[in-house]
Every structure is written in structure tokens, then in C-alpha cells.
Design a protein around this nucleic acid. Structure first.
Length: 105
DNA sequence: GCCGTGACGATTC
DNA sequence: CGAATCGCCACGG
């Protein structure tokens, strides 16, 4: 029994562990948490994530390495800018280089 | 206990 | 290749 009863807090906990310059995927987090099919719930946790926390939700991308809708982070290109600022490289298609930055706990 | 929702994933057409 | 659909799970009301 831990303070993190809900998946939400678990997701946040894992996402918060993502090292700078790395990224993870919703499905990967869900899988690590023990619910490989709860990728959607993970994304929901990000969306419901408390603003003001140190949760680097911008380091979490989908399985394709694509960032979620640009406007989702409050502005177009915001997430990408943050990742680039952390040293994350992008594919020509605008996707994160999973081979170099995919990180899983 | 059912319904609606959702920043996904994979498959199919 | 592009778009659309279904399926999955978890939380809130």
C-alpha cells in the first residue's frame, strides 16, 4: 500500500522520473504500471495532471514518438521546444528519436 | 453499478 | 499512404 493508489499518481510518479533529455510513451508507462492497455488512462492522467507540479508531461509522447496535439500544451510547438531545449532530437517528420531518447523505468 | 470521457494503440479499409 | 474504427483501461458523476 502506497500513497499512490490511483494510476494517475503512479503515472505522475513515473513521468516525474524521466531524466532530462529523454522521453517515454504512454503505452510504456501503462505497461510498466502493470496495465498495458491503459495507455489512454495514462494520457488522461497527463491531461488531468495538476499544473504547477514538476511533472514533465512534455517528455511523454505516444508510441509513434509523435507529440500530442500541439495546442494541448498551451501553444503550438511548446512541447517540442521544451524537448529540444533538453537535448532531445527530432526526426525529420517532427517525431522524437525513440532510438536515442526512449526511456522506460 | 452504469455511462461518459480521454494528451493511446493497433488494425483495417 | 491516409483516414477511420474498434478495443483497451481507469476515473468521475
Amino acid at each position: 500500500m502506497r500513497t499512490t493508489d490511483t494510476l494517475f499518481e503512479r503515472v505522475w510518479s513515473v513521468a516525474a522520473k524521466v531524466p532530462r533529455g529523454k522521453v517515454t510513451t504512454y503505452g510504456a508507462i501503462a505497461r510498466v504500471l502493470g496495465s498495458p492497455g491503459a495507455a489512454r488512462t495514462v494520457g488522461w492522467a497527463m491531461r488531468a495532471a495538476p499544473v504547477g507540479s514538476e511533472l514533465p508531461c512534455h517528455r511523454v509522447v505516444n508510441a509513434a514518438g509523435e507529440l500530442c496535439p500541439e495546442d494541448t500544451f498551451g501553444g503550438p510547438g511548446v512541447q517540442r521546444s521544451l524537448l529540444e531545449s533538453e537535448g532531445v532530437t527530432f526526426d525529420v517528420q517532427g517525431r522524437v528519436d525513440m532510438k536515442r531518447h526512449l526511456w522506460i523505468p
